[in-house]
Each structure stands twice: as C-alpha cells, then as structure tokens.
Design a protein around this nucleic acid. Structure first.
Lengths: 350, 350
DNA sequence: GATGGGGGTGAACACGTGTGCGCTACCCGG
DNA sequence: CCGGGTAGCGCACACGTGTTCACCCCCATC
C-alpha cells in the first residue's frame, strides 16, 4: 500500500518548490509558461490526484455537503437524494449521506458528525427534530437547508411543499365524490408535515359538520404497516359508525398501497366499497390496480432546488448575510381509479 | 461565523499544551487523573467537536467510505444503500454517496473523487465498469467491495447474488407452467448481471428446443420504460410467432410492473393472456394486482454484508493481506398470481 | 547526599496543501 | 554604469491533530 503522490513529489521531480507546483496546478500566480507546462505534464505522468483532505484543512472549505433523510426506504426520499446528489456533484461537491430512522436524537448526532467532518453545508429532509432544535441548528455557523420542515434563524433556510393546501385538495376531491365518513391513516409522531395533512383532514370534515374522529397512526412508512393499520382503522370505523369508512385519506402512498391490500383481505374492494387516496405520487401509483389517487409532490425538483439553494448560499460572500429564504411548492392532485366509484374514468397514466 | 474550538483553545483554557489535551481526550498516555478530568470538563463546556479533517490528515484514516450506485431510483439500490449506511454508521464511519446513471466513465470519475477524499474503502453496487476497470480498481491501493460484479485482484472483493441460478429458477417455473413462447425484457448494455439473467433465459429455452430470439432492452430501469418497451416486445413476438408471447421474463420488477401496465393498454391481461415474471422482489410486488412472481434478492442484507466485509478489511492488519473474498447469495423464488394462469392460488403476501 | 527511575508534560515535527511576502535575477531607461 | 521596476520563484508559516522524544521534577533507594 504505497503512498499517494503529493505536490512535493512533483516538486522534486520538476526541480522546483512545492508552492510553485501548487500555483501551477491551480493556474494561479505568475510564472513562466515553460515551467507551468512542465509541471503539469509531470503531474499527469505521475498520476497525481489532489488530496482534498489537506486542501480542506487549509482552505476551510471541504466542498462537501451532508444530507440527512429519515427513511431511505420511502421512494419519496430516494428522489430527494437523487436530486440533491445530482446538483451537488455537478458542482464538484461530494455528498455525505445519513439515514436516521425517525429518531430525533440520532438525527442530531448525525448533524454533529457532519459538523465534525467540516462539511460546507447541510440538507435535512423531513426532519423530526427540525422544529425542536431549530435554534441549535442556527448556532452551528453553517448554512442549512430544510426540506419540508419549518425554518427559523439566519443560517437555516427551507424548501417545502404546501402540504396543508395539498391535503385540502385531496379532501375536497373526496368530499366532492360524496363521501362523508372519511378516516385518516397517519404516520408516527407529530412531525410538522404530519400535522398539516392531518389538520387539513380534520378541518375539512369539521367545516361540513362531519365526524373527524376515526384515525390511526402507523409507526413507520412501509406498505406492511399500511396493511396492518388499516385493519385497526376499519375496526374503529365500525365501532364509531357501524360500517367501514367510505373513504380513507392516507398520509402517503406507501401506506395507501398497504391499505388497499389490507382492505382486500378484509373482503373490501377499492373503490367499490372504500375509496383510498394517498400522498406523494410515487411512480408506481399510476400502475397499481386500481390506480391510486394521490397528490404529486415534485420531489426530485425539491431535492435539486434544496441543493441549489445551499450552493448559492455557499458561493456568495459570507458577510452579505442574506435573509433566510423559504421556497414553497404546490403539488398537483392526480385523480385516478381508487377514489372514482364503480365506473372509473380513464386514469391519467404517467 | 466564528471559528470552531480546537484543542489549542482547550489547552489555553486549561493551562496545558495541546498534546496533553489530545492525549486526555483520547484516553491515551499516562497523566494525572486530575489533569485529565479537568481537561475533559473544559472540553465539554466549550462544546468541543474534534476536527475529523485534521485528524484524517495526520492519521491517514478518515473513517469514511464511499458508496457508488448506478441508479437510486430503483428501490433495489435504496435497500443496498440502507444496509451499507446502517452498518457503516454503527461503526462510526461516514458515508459518501454517489449515483452514476449507468455511465461507466462517470463511475470511474466518482471513484477517483473518493480517492481524492481519502476514503478508507469503497463499495460499488451493480457496476457497469467493474468488469472493464477491475485491474485499475486493484491499483487504487484501498479495499474495494463490489456488489453484484465480478472481482479480481488483491484489493477487490465481492458480495454477489447468484443471478444465473435465480434466473434459472424463474425460467423453470415458467416452463413448468407449460409456457413455450417466452420473451425477455432486458436492460441496457451488457453488464455482468444482465448477461447472467439473459443467458439463463436463453439456455433454458434452448435446452428444450424452444425459440429464444424475442427480446428487447430498455435503456433504463424505470416503470415507464417497461411500459414502452413491452409494446415493442409484443410486436416482435407477433412478427416471429404470429401471437403475443405466452410469458415475459423481465430483467427486474420495475420493468415487470411497467410491462403489465403496458400489456393492459394493448388489451392483454396478466396472467390470462400473458404471464409476467420479474426479479428482485421489491416490497410492492406482493401488493400489485396481479401480485408479481419474482425472485427475492436479500438486498438489505447484501448491503449490510458488503459494508461488514469492507470494515473487517479495514480493521485488520494491513500487512496480513487476506485472499480476496467472494460471498454468494441465493435468492428465493416467490410464486404469485402473475404467472399462475386463470385461477391463481393464494399468493404469498409479505 | 548522590543516583536512579518513573510519572507527567511540552517542544518539535509531521500530514498535504495554500498563501503572503520577500528574494534574486533580468531587463531597460537614463 | 547605476537604479528602479518586474517577472519568476522559494521561504516560512498556517490549518488542527497526532506522535515521538527529551525534559523536568519528585520520590525512593543505596
């Protein structure tokens, strides 16, 4: 395991000092074209790759950013990762990835490790902790972009989807279809995102004087939890209304897919017996049977934009403290078979 | 944006030199308990976090590993990422993630950047380049673990699934069902993985004297490409046999899901008109309608094991060069509705 | 009291890179 | 021939940490 070649090795080979090599490689400072060309060819011949660790130490810029997600399994996050990674790499940055399975403490620990790595900035997606630790994040002294969390502080910025409006659109659609007994299949503890969707569900029902008491929460965002939790949900509905719900609004598509599967086991068909709506519009939704009504979030774009925002914060002058930015997206309702009664119209596929 | 606190700051505050602080923090070297305790409390009070960049420069160990995947969109890779990340983080390492959309040159460039970052080791999943650049990887002078690629060289190890055996199992199942005109829906250029699955398809047919000429390849692993490519596949089958295929063996589940959707648009129902089998067993497969026959790869476990192998290589003595390891997995065939004729038996769900 | 030994600590250097500043030539004008 | 300007380059230091070695001091022992 031999040592990598450094600029000192090149310097020795070229008969110059290592600062000269450094300047030659970075095309900086004044020097004869002959020397520069010679150094460059020698560097290439020796297979030199700059040591970014050492460079980062002296320049205080590592050209790396950290990304924290709560659950890689959810394709929603995959797309965010993809967007962030693409932008970041296109700009010559590297990406640290960490997944914290919905544990706020883990989340904070991971952020700390990123700070120790001297990353230039951090993106946090669907944080559980963002709300509680916002002020602490602000004190980290480095730019942070949150995806789908609330932002406050000079260093903390945000890119987020208007979940409240989106959930309202879903609920209006369900109510327009004539459903009255609408249950909610939620997720985990109270994150900001969960709060908005649930709130929209509750208020939409209350405004029309309908019952908003039938809800359960899955511990994790997986299809399997949708399957098991929908059974409890139907039980509750039967206890409250004497019948299954007419429609179920699910926190996201994974739970919705599981719910449909679970309902089928109970002998309930979607949408004939129960309508089901999801959230996110995963790629598979249009290809399910029945195809799934859901609200499309531009998740790849959100990842891209979050990264873009972070990089622009890094590039600009440190002194020129910008005001915290907050970009807001609005998703599009995708109406498909799962909420369309007995004779579904042709679904929008793709 | 104030400077972070370093061991020198602690040293000044404690009235000692920075080497003493270093030793105190690392619990190393002999020193009075009083001094050590004092330093530790001061460090905690000042909110010290070690600068891993500087530490990495001197120790030549960054406690970070790089992970290269070809396509984050595919849940198959999500699970691998999840496995690698979990193990790596549990051992105090950080993870660099890069996605190279099936471009071998990008792949190599990314590996180079990892080397520049001085990562301790690299995991490469489903490499397109692994076969071509194996010897170059070996010369990098750092341990590399490939997932589902061929390994050769002293530094290059592998964890892989026996795709050939798996594909044979799928084909045997299809042939047992009585299908004779079986088409193949492939993916992209010739990777090792693709070669094995296609080879199994071809040989299984040839052994029984059946026609193995109807195949197309999707450019990318997405549902949408499955939809469009299956149309071409049916066209070819009609040209060759005068009828659609009786069954389609798809390179993976995403393409299979798309294929089923595309067939439906053509007025062909699965499995009544055409049987479809996939590969990987994504979580959603059991919940499709029809549920999808496929071969389950232990992808999370493979990610875990790859990371574990890499870390064990890092921990052991450098001199004691181990022989290159190669671990082999065998997936399990999941027989479900999509290949089960008109009256499907109860699918194994979950 | 001299000597030895060992525990505790700091000075110096290293890791690989970037940068401010000063030094040496050389060229050219006066 | 002298002086000033400038092009080309090296010295020294910095970044934050780890490590080797030598040093000092205190105590025990002969």
């Amino acid at each position: 395991m031999r040592r990598r070649v450094s600029i000192k090795d090149i310097a020795a080979a070229a008969g110059v000092s290592h600062p000269t090599v450094s300047r030659a490689l970075r095309g900086q400072g004044r020097m004869s074209e002959a020397t520069r060309a010679r150094i460059l060819t020698i560097a290439r011949e020796m297979g030199y790759t700059p040591n970014l660790v050492a460079r980062g130490l002296v320049t205080q810029r590592t050209y790396s950013v950290g990304l924290v997600v709560t659950n890689i399994r959810d394709p929603f996050h995959s797309e965010i990762i993809r967007g962030v990674e693409a932008v970041v790499r296109a700009h010559g940055y590297s990406l640290f990835l960490a997944s914290t399975t919905a544990d706020p403490d883990q989340e904070l620990e991971v952020v700390r490790s990123f700070v120790g790595r001297d990353v230039d900035g951090i993106v946090i997606a669907s944080s559980q902790a963002g709300d509680r630790y916002a002020e602490m994040l602000d004190e980290l002294g480095m730019p942070i972009v949150l995806i789908n969390s609330h932002a406050e502080g000079d260093n903390v910025h945000a890119v987020r989807h208007d979940d409240y409006a989106g959930a309202c659109a879903v609920m209006e659609h369900l109510l327009d279809q004539g459903f009255q007994r609408i249950a909610f299949l939620g997720l985990g503890r109270s994150s900001r995102v969960h709060g908005e969707r649930r709130q929209a569900w509750k208020e939409a029902l209350r405004r029309r004087g309908l019952d908003a008491s039938v809800a359960v929460s899955a511990p994790e965002s997986t299809i399997e939890h949708g399957v098991t939790q929908v059974v409890h949900l139907v039980e509750r509905a039967r206890g409250r209304w004497g019948t299954p719900p007419q429609a179920i609004f699910c926190y996201n598509d994974l739970l919705a897919i599981g719910a449909i599967s679970g309902l089928r086991r109970l002998g309930l068909e979607v949408p004939q017996d129960v309508a089901v709506a999801g959230f996110d519009d995963l790629e598979v939704c249009a290809h399910m049977r029945p195809s799934l009504t859901t609200l499309r979030q531009p998740r790849y774009e959100m990842g891209e934009d979050a990264a873009q925002l972070l990089l622009s914060l890094l590039e600009q002058d440190r002194r020129a403290q910008p005001k915290p930015t907050e970009k807001l997206y609005r998703g599009e309702l995708q109406i498909r078979e799962s909420t369309q009664g007995v004779s579904p119209q042709t679904a929008r596929v793709g």
